[in-house]
Structure formats: C-alpha cells, structure tokens
C-alpha cells in the first residue's frame, strides 16, 4: 500500500458517500444519472466477486463492502424511493448504457490476462469503469448546469483515478514485476474522459461562476 493508492481509495470512497449523503439528505437526485450509478454497481459486483474466496486484508474487504453497499443504495434510492425517484430526470438521462455493458463484455472476452470466469469478469469491470461516467457527463452537458455536489462527485471520481495513476507509477518503480497493461490503459482512458470536465470545473471555480 502506498500513499497515492490510500489517497485514491479515500477520495473514491468520499465521492460515493458524498453522493449518497446528498441524495439521502435533500431527498433529491436532480442532475444525477442513474445509468452511471447502475454501471458502477455492475463494476463493483463483477470486480468484487472474489470477496469471499480470496482474502487480501481487512481494509480491502471493508472497502469492497462500502463500495458495493453505497453504489447499490444509490441505485435503490433513485429507482425505488418515491420522493427521490420523482426528482429523477428521466427525459434527459437517455444514454443507452446497455451498449456499454455489452461492448465491454465482448472486449473482456477478447482481451484479458487469463481466460477464467473471475478474470474475465474482473477485466470486464475495468473496461466498464473506464466508461461508466459517460451517461453522467452527457446528462451534465444536456442540463447545462451542475449543482455543486454533483460537480464535487465527478471531481472526486476524477481525482481518485488520477491518484491511482500515480500509484501505478510508484509501484512500477518499486515492485520489480509489477506490470498490468490492461489496468493502466483503462485507467488512463478513464482519467482522460474527465480531463475536459476538470477544465470547465476549474474555469468555473477560477471565475467564481456557475459551471455550465
């Protein structure tokens, strides 16, 4: 474990807890894409299948439970909680995210490190995580505005991915045979997707005006 990875995990945990807290507190999910949240729930469900078979550490297991619990809770709130569901912007959140699931599944069947059930699903979860933010970014552009908590959510998500890249660089130089091309490439693609969002987020912060 290194400081970049710990900071990355904490930032990631805060991003989901901030969003869950927002939805729970103000009983609204305006501006949030349920499709992105469903994709994240699938990412965690397919990546943490080994939670019962392979024990890495208390920390690892605890964080997996936090991510699984928060992502499924957010989807539940947005889909089945009456008050919250009423604020869901169905007309604008129209990204066909099942195509993302399908293409990531096909890609995982083609490109993976080992052809085993767990390994292919793990690779699938990496590909899906890289594109999971797309419905949210599209919704953001459509609604043309962003309340500060959704902005913070995306900002923290991007930050977590950026810190993970520093973690991989650190591990590459400190651990002899630490080479995971698939992880690195998907992580880089995901971070690049956030790049333009960061640009506009920074501009709105610098000029102290609403992000649009």
């Amino acid at each position: 474990m290194n400081i970049f990875r710990l900071a990355g995990d904490m930032t990631h945990m805060f991003s989901v807890l901030v969003l869950l807290l927002k939805i729970h507190t103000i009983k609204s999910c305006a501006g949030v894409s349920v499709k992105t949240q469903e994709l994240y729930a699938i990412v965690f469900a397919t990546r943490y299948l080994d939670i019962f078979t392979s024990f890495v550490s208390i920390y690892n297991t605890f964080m997996k439970l936090v991510f699984l619990g928060s992502s499924f809770s957010i989807v539940w709130y947005m889909r089945y909680h009456k008050a919250v569901h009423r604020t869901y912007d169905r007309e604008q959140d129209t990204f066909r995210h099942w195509f993302l699931v399908l293409s990531c599944l096909l890609l995982a069947l083609l490109i993976h490190e080992k052809f085993t059930f767990l390994e292919v699903l793990w690779t699938f979860s990496l590909y899906l995580e890289a594109v999971a933010i797309l419905p949210q970014l599209v919704l953001l552009q459509r609604t043309r505005n962003i309340d500060n908590l959704t902005g913070q959510y995306i900002f923290l998500l991007g930050g977590y991915r950026g810190l993970y890249i520093l973690n991989w660089i650190y591990r590459y130089f400190t651990e002899p045979h630490f080479v995971h091309w698939i992880t690195w490439i998907t992580g880089l693609v995901q971070t690049l997707l956030y790049a333009d969002f960061f640009y506009y987020y920074f501009l709105s912060w610098k000029n102290n005006k609403k992000l649009n």
Binding site: H12, D50, S54, F55, V56, N60, L118, Y164, N167, T183
Partner: peptide
Amino acid sequence: EDAETGHDEL
C-alpha cells in the same frame, strides 16, 4: 498482500 488472483487493488 497480493491475493492469489494478483488483484490486491480495489
């Protein structure tokens, strides 16, 4: 800390 699947990261 590496699990046998080699996936020790979240």
